[in-house]
Design a protein around this nucleic acid. Structure first.
Length: 402
RNA sequence: GUGGCCUUAGUGAAGUGGUUAUCACGCCAGUUUGUGGCACUGGCAGCACGAGUUCAAUUCUCGUAGGCCACC
């Protein structure tokens, strides 16, 4: 894998990431396809939307259908029919989501040896050691692989965060050694993950240890687990980015709301992922940015128009399409959006689909939410190239209601 | 016309002589962030009407209205 920064604008930057399955123009948002499919969204939809790279999850794919099965289908890219660049998460997040983050019914526990999972499918036990995770991810065949790390809740205390840093660093060293010993290491880029919660000293310690391994890329982990929006989240992100090499891609794990991708890009983050656009969509919620009444927009024009207006009279927020109030609406969900959903269906129809739990609603709303993020992503790239990123960020902050 | 059964939230149901009448859908508000596959948490809203028995009736009795079934 190769990466080079192509333009910078303040801390924000554009870049070019060459993987075994294609080129990725950063900064990017990556849709999450945990089990080998972005839930409710077909690969054709993703291509039409302009997605560049898709995530998969080692833990889930290992349990079903099994890494060997995926390998026998020609790897995750072929298996999922996406065929473009892919990244697999390691299962480290599941130490949090199935274990640490739960008060009862824990399905994961951690020791220095690795993570012990109890399958949520049949209750069987599975030990994920650093070495084993590397082998599974090799079989899955993604272009970028994440190491097993120990993820604490974002609001954990210093002592717990410190333990997680120590363990994650040790595991990362072991995994880097396994990865480096491979003949095909250049086909799968191993990223290092920085832990440390919101503690500057721990983040620094974690970043130093990871950077010393000279890996192809680095990720900021543990910031989306549990209570994500601490007041100094962006300070933590900025400080951590500053600790990382400038010539390697930076991946902020687990964030992806419209305003958060711009905030992160502004600080020098190159890659992000999040389940929210697709999860919210499956539950009937969409992101929508709307012009003042009477402002006519053609499909694909909304961001240009927003900037031209300086944001005056515009408004952006999340809405719940299941509400009865949307049934009479006969215009598009979001005027100015060029996604399939907005150019094809009336808002009232979409509301009806959500209300009757028509499966099609999951696809249509997922497509729209992803379209909003990708529109912002493209606008960000363009603004960075032109040296106008700050204006984009400032304007969007004005109109977006978190 | 006669007999039987029924009427509880907007809808469909459960239940009880005694604090705050249960459930589902509905409506409203919220949560979700490296996905435990279509979720979760709150709030709103009700005993058909009238009379009687009783310390106390949504619950028991009678009547009225409406509904369902059977028979003539």
């Amino acid at each position: 894998m190769k990466f080079q920064v192509t333009h910078t604008d303040g801390a924000a930057r554009t870049g070019r990431l060459e993987t075994a399955h294609g080129v990725v123009e950063t900064p990017i948002f990556m849709p999450v396809g945990t089990v080998g499919a972005v839930k409710a969204v077909a690969p054709d939809d993703l291509r039409t939307l302009g997605a560049q790279i898709v995530l998969g999850n080692t833990y889930h794919l290992y349990l079903r259908p099994g890494a060997e099965t995926v390998a026998s289908h020609g790897g995750l890219q072929q298996f999922s029919a996406w065929r473009g660049p892919m990244l697999t998460d390691s299962g480290g997040f599941q130490i949090y989501s199935l274990g640490r983050g739960k008060a009862e019914g824990k399905l994961a526990s951690v020791s220095d040896q690795g993570a012990l999972f109890r399958s949520h499918i049949d209750g069987s036990e599975h030990l994920f050691t650093p070495e084993r995770v590397m082998r599974i991810e090799q079989q899955l065949g993604a272009d970028i692989i994440m190491p097993l790390d120990d993820v604490p809740p974002a609001d954990c205390h210093h002592a717990e965060a410190s333990d997680c840093v120590a363990r994650s660093s040790r595991w990362l060293e072991q995994q880097a050694a396994v990865w480096r010993a491979r003949l095909d290491a250049d086909k799968q880029a191993l990223f290092g993950i920085i832990q440390g919660g919101s503690f500057a000293d721990l983040r620094q310690q974690s970043a130093r240890a990871a950077a010393s391994l000279d890996l192809p890329g680095y990720a900021l982990g543990g910031l989306s687990a549990g209570k994500p929006y601490s007041p100094n989240l962006w300070l933590t992100v900025a400080e951590t980015c500053a600790l990382l090499p400038t010539d390697k891609p930076r991946y902020l794990m687990g964030f992806g709301e419209p305003e958060t991708i711009l905030e992160a890009f502004a600080l020098g983050v190159d890659m992000m992922d999040c389940v929210l656009p697709t999860r919210l969509a499956r539950h009937g919620a969409v992101w929508r940015v709307t012009a003042p009444a009477g402002r006519h927009l053609t499909p694909g024009e909304w961001l240009a128009a927003l900037m031209a207006d300086g944001g005056h009279g515009w408004q952006g927020r999340r809405i719940d399409l299941g509400q009865a109030r949307y049934l009479p609406e006969n215009g598009p969900l979001m005027p100015g959006c060029d996604c399939y959903t907005c150019t094809t269906f009336q808002l009232g129809t979409l509301s009806h689909y959500v209300r009757i739990k028509e499966p099609l609603a999951m696809r249509l709303l997922s497509v729209h939410n992803l379209a909003v993020l990708f529109a912002l992503e493209r606008a960000a790239k363009q603004a960075i190239v032109r040296g106008q990123f700050q204006a984009l960020l400032t304007t969007f902050r004005q109109v977006w209601q978190p």
